[in-house]
Amino acid sequence: MRISGLIGASVLTLILSSGAFAQEASLDLVEPIAEYKIYVTEKVAKLVEDTTAFTAAVKAGEVDKAKALFAPTRLSYEAIEPIAELFSDLDVSIDSRADDYEKAEADPEFPGFHRIEYGLWEKNSTEGLAPVADKLLADVKELEGRIASLTFPPEKVVGGAAVLMEEVAATKISGEEDRYSHTDLWDFRGNFDGARKIVELVRPLIADKEADFLKTVDANFDTVDTTLLKYKDGEGYVTYDKLTEDDRKVLAAAVNTLAEDLSTLRGKLGLD
């Protein structure tokens, strides 16, 4: 077991004190949650590394290089969104969209990845982006620090699988997330990987009792994989506009169904 080191004693304390009727299940969750913390920690380390290179390119005025690094850098963030979103101040400054601001793209408060995306693709320029890049890197490092000292709440971890699907279902399947770069399929990849990781970690706990459930969930993840595979391009994916209407429908139904099914995962594990 790789529990020691990354899992704090506080995790155990929290789990043990999380209520009378879920104790048994929660004890079983100690290992999956420790594993998940390792996963998130590795992802956020990669995020810091990639964001360092990405923001350096932005500050150096290297538009093409920055564009090439944009989607792969975001991949790590998208995979750990359920945890990243626990820090709502950072989520806003790292990943909010123009719609969140009254003056949209023209709003001086519009920050983060999508502000840089807007400059790179819509203006084909890095002009004025240096302070945004500095802030983004600082925020990502801050996120890494906060995650390191975070006690992972079991219901947030397990519920995170559904949260990732809800994100895609509500505001991503339409292609509105990466509206300037159209790199949405990369984000999908990150979200699905993040959700599937959570399912894999808790699978042993429900494998016997919930075989049909897992079969359905696996089938939908497989549908997603098969569909996304058609759009693979090198290490990443082609732009969202290449997604056919038929495949968009297939993905939408798979996402909605995963959201429905995974919304029961917490309950199946006895988490309140």
Binding site: N220, K249, A252, A253, A254, N256, T257, A259, E260
Partner: peptide
């Protein structure tokens, strides 16, 4: 919608 999420959108 809830009952048919896997079948239609």
């Amino acid at each position: 919608i809830k009952a048919s999420s896997r079948q239609m959108i």
